[in-house]
Design a protein around this nucleic acid. Structure first.
Lengths: 211, 211
DNA sequence: ACCTGAACACCGTTCAAGT
DNA sequence: ACCTGAACACCGTTCAAGT
């Protein structure tokens, strides 16, 4: 098979390259796929390499170690989570209450649809987060997004007006905590029989809303 | 060294046995120690065995696989968490508000003092929790304890009186979520500069209390 | 610059054998 | 019943070598 020499790569985004292609992104995608199919326990560098069609040592040309690949996968997960939060909240530019409600539901949806990526993002599998600036940047950017929504709600009198950065942590923590407990099977059957995690998060948000 | 043949084991609790002693519990303790010293990444069955002074295959006489040891460690963690919650709340038998405040602080303390055990208990390292009845029992017992405190608070008019089981999930989730975000470095530096995770949890509880 | 294959230390698990 | 030691498949990581 011959390939056109004339690349369509006009944008500055990375795209297919010569040889084995864009292996770095191929490895990240392979990792996400293995995560979805086999869970965290099934994620090995050698399997990722095999799925990307390269030798077991090829990843080391792009990632110094396994932790670094995990950081890249987590970063990719945060990018997607941020994008989904942004997409949903952009639908209601002048309705912070809707942003809060729909944003939190988007958060739950992301966790449910990408359970093992979500776990890897938040569950301490990644040690030494401090060493991965891209990871820190997008995770803090996500935090700032939540803060922004909460502040808008406070300005509109929808949430109690207390120091907004702590309130944001508190609210994010509540959403995140309910999901985390739900995913680990900590919420007893008697509760989950009647309502889904989605419902519980919606209930929690309702309790916080003033008007 | 000769050992007395006359055991002091009057109670039904397990205690030292002949030969290499109570290897099962020795393995659990060795696991907890490795967890504290080297983190989740350093926890291998072979290292646990070595620390307990037996061969690498000896653990298989007591645990069918590594997951089963992890389940036992998590179960032990829940037992300790439950005991600490129980001890603190028992100090204030007629003061549900104090129980809520001090109980949540005890929860945070446990997470901080046993960070990696806490992670292993809640972070999806244990797959197929359903297969470990002792784990399910104590984790649900802990859940029921939280529900009990919340109900007492509702009865005393300290917390909003909504369906108590959902409120308990919501409040537990809030405490748990703030800790989880804090431990993973998700809470931005600007927030954590001024207050500790303890303070944030205390703030969150205050927000919920009616009187 | 990017990739391969051999090599090394370590891991989980099994099993025949010892007491 | 409880433990050992050899063995196997798999893993992360390194490195000399190939293009």
């Amino acid at each position: 098979m011959t390939v056109s020499r004339f690349s369509l790569n006009i944008s500055p985004m990375p795209s297919k390259k010569y040889h084995h292609g864009d292996l770095k992104n191929a490895l990240i995608n392979a990792g996400v796929e293995i995560l979805a199919k086999e869970g965290i326990g099934g994620l090995s560098l050698r399997k990722v390499a095999q799925r990307a069609g390269v030798s077991h040592s090829a990843p080391y040309a792009h990632f110094p170690d396994k932790q670094s690949l995990i950081a890249a996968i987590s970063t990719e997960g945060f990018n997607q989570l941020y994008a989904e939060l942004d997409a949903v909240t952009s639908l209601y530019p002048y309705d912070p209450k809707k942003q809060l409600i729909e944003g939190s539901q988007a958060y739950v949806r992301f966790a449910m649809n990408n359970a093992d990526t979500f776990k890897i993002m938040f569950s301490g599998v990644l040690e030494k987060e401090k060493e991965y600036p891209a990871f820190l940047e997008i995770s803090h950017k996500t935090f700032e997004r939540v803060v922004g929504i909460v502040q808008a709600c406070q300005d509109a009198g929808i949430l109690r007006a207390s120091p907004s950065d702590m309130t944001a942590v508190t609210i994010w923590g509540q959403i995140h905590g309910v999901i985390a407990l739900g995913m680990e099977g900590q919420i007893s059957r008697t509760v989950l029989e009647h309502r889904s995690v989605q419902d519980i998060v919606a209930f929690a948000i309702e309790q916080l809303i003033l008007s």
